[in-house]
């Protein structure tokens, strides 16, 4: 039996919306610790993982882990007409015919309740075991406001043809983004900033050694979940998938894993 409730549908709607236009299907796995969503596209160089811990829910009942393959794009379309302040309940039973029900209830009078039933689908390739590599495994870790990172991704797309590449280079005090497309190149330099009075604002760089990695621009854009979080942490290594992490609340986060392209 799985029964989860959020008294505000906003967070769940935003997550499904942010991911629904990038990944058509996703694997939901519920356990005692929380609800984990994994999605990957057929490029096989990116994977996204969202973890909403049980504490993030107002009611979390999961007596047996449930693994559900769902149509994320279909959910995003269905939920776009619900209200952010609706109460959302997610319910599934093992014995039911592989279906999960999302209930949206208007909070004040509860006079309107919408039941969305989604059938489970088989999704290849996910879920995957994602080891948590310690920070020491990465050559450089950059933390910056997502309000700063999102416009950078947009600018990098200004040359946005399909095969535009982005090179992210980290030095002691700066992180540079270079995008090279058919029509030209764009280089954006970001210096490290220290604004002690605004703890959420700074661009911080922890560099163990210089690193410069190339990514497909189209996957960089997928890390636009920044609307869900005020800070992005970018962990870079020439030996591991890069991680773009957005903490949504203390208990929840979204991580985009991206493999650098071979030079």
């Amino acid at each position: 039996m799985l029964e989860l409730r959020l008294v505000q549908a906003t967070l769940f709607k935003n997550v499904v919306e942010a991911l629904g236009d990038l990944f058509s299907t996703a694997h939901f796995n519920s356990s005692r610790t929380g609800l984990e969503l994994q999605a990957k596209d057929n490029s096989r160089v990116t994977l996204i993982m969202l973890l909403l811990r049980a504490e993030a829910f107002d009611h979390y009942l999961c007596d047996r882990g449930l693994s559900m393959g769902l149509n994320l794009a279909g959910m995003a379309k269905a939920f776009c007409c619900t209200n952010n302040d609706d109460i959302i309940t997610i319910k599934a039973e093992e014995d039911w015919s592989d279906t999960v029900t999302f209930t949206f209830e208007s909070p004040e009078d509860g006079d309107e309740i919408s039941y969305f039933h989604f059938d489970f689908m088989v999704i290849n390739g996910v879920p995957l075991e994602i080891p948590e590599y310690p920070e020491s495994e990465y050559q450089a870790i950059v933390r910056m406001p997502s309000a700063k990172f999102m416009p950078i991704c947009n600018k990098l797309s200004s040359f946005g043809d399909r095969d535009t590449v982005v090179i992210i280079s980290v030095d002691k005090e700066s992180v540079d983004f270079l995008s090279r497309g058919k029509t030209g190149t764009l280089t954006i330099f970001c210096r490290e900033t220290q604004t002690v009075d605004k703890p959420k604002e700074p661009t911080l760089i922890e560099m163990k050694e210089k690193v410069s990695l190339m990514f497909d621009l189209r996957y960089m854009n997928s890390s636009k979940a920044s609307t869900l979080s005020d800070q992005v942490t970018i962990s870079l290594s020439s030996k591991l998938p890069a991680v773009f992490e957005y903490k949504i609340t203390e208990m929840s986060c979204i991580r985009y894993y991206m493999l650098p392209r071979n030079e």
Partner: peptide, 14 residues
């Protein structure tokens, strides 16, 4: 060039 590795080289099927 080197064959592009895939994300599943780093993360195993659970």
């Amino acid at each position: 060039g080197r064959k592009q590795s895939t994300i599943t080289n780093y993360f195993v099927r659970s």
